[in-house]
Design a protein around this nucleic acid. Structure first.
Lengths: 176, 176
DNA sequence: ATGACTGTACCGGCTGGACGGTTTACCTAG
DNA sequence: CTAGGTAAACCGTCCAGCCGGTACAGTCAT
């Protein structure tokens, strides 16, 4: 709550490092030693802030949920409208939020809390989409397209024309 | 290629056990010991068939690619047409192929070969979709929806009405 | 104002357990 | 005899978590 080194608190630097490693190589390489090294903290220092790896995951997920709430707000009053905003941010924009999202999905493979967090975020977006359209079928379909975009992106096989294709199809439905 | 115990060969039983463990708990719990136990084979017996874990992954991926080729064929001459077939099989039907697909995506997190295999399978489906529609935008969008369905399913948060919603929207586009 | 003490933030060596993989000795049906 | 195993000891490596220390800022009685 007081000591700073560069700009961010050590605590946040550790969480950032954890997310980066998760994004780059999955949970296998995101060991405590690797996280500590990346955050330029000793392992002991890391353990001072987060008593266990589990606690670190919890903290990362808490931060992500908070960022998620902010994202839903931005989506609601985005100038392009919620749909375009949602679709455009479904592909990795390099933001801290995206990084956290990808990190969480890496962990989700064997962590229930991460799955729950992801589900909670998805529910938030769906609510905005459903309210905007007043049509659950359309809202769900757009959300699925967003999930597909996101999946392709994180699995490393996104086609750069995908977003254009989707916009084209949604235009035919007057759903943009 | 000859010895049977129950119905399947020991080799296939091992691969099945490996996939099951991958689906249930990700690569962390799919250890050689756990696979051997699930397949009711000794660890030595497992290593007799697959000299290393890497070799086991390769074999699993090979089997999956073969099943994938068969699936593309089934998709081409499915009575419901390729789109319905593709969509319906994007949600887990409990088939061996689905299980293999989920298993591969679990491994894909830190395995290039698995990512390549998944990409190859996706290309096969896209080709059928694109040929059917003669419209890349629509084909890509349907594929993204399929990816979304699949993603939701494997992340454990599928809504059972999703498929109906998608069918509804595609009907509005005369794309079913 | 100073010396004793306290809490915060952090360091880094170490341990114990799990895991992948190897090897060896043994069994058994065809 | 040999293909197809079983059973279990063993090795090297990796990793989470533990622990004994350090540095230093602040507090407080004297």
């Amino acid at each position: 709550m007081s000591a700073r080194t560069d700009g961010a608190s050590t605590r946040d630097r550790i969480l950032d490092a954890f997310e980066m490693l998760l994004v780059e190589g999955g949970s296998r390489i995101a060991t405590l030693d690797a996280v500590a090294a990346r955050a330029e903290v000793s392992k002991g220092g890391l353990l001072y802030h987060f008593p266990s790896k589990d606690a670190m995951v919890d903290a990362m997920l808490d931060r992500l949920r908070e960022q998620g709430r902010a994202d839903v707000d931005k989506m609601k009053d985005a100038s392009q409208g919620p749909v375009r905003y949602y679709l455009e941010t479904s592909v990795d924009t390099g933001s801290a939020f995206d990084r956290g999202l990808i990190a969480a999905s890496r962990v989700a493979q064997d962590d229930t809390r991460a799955r729950e967090t992801l589900a909670e975020l998805r529910n938030g977006w769906f609510a905005v989409l459903a309210e905007h359209y007043g049509d659950d079928a359309l809202a769900r379909t757009v959300q699925l397209i967003g999930d597909g975009l996101y999946f392709d992106d994180t699995t490393g096989l996104a086609h750069k024309r995908s977003l254009d294709h989707v916009r084209d199809v949604l235009a035919r439905l007057d759903a943009l």
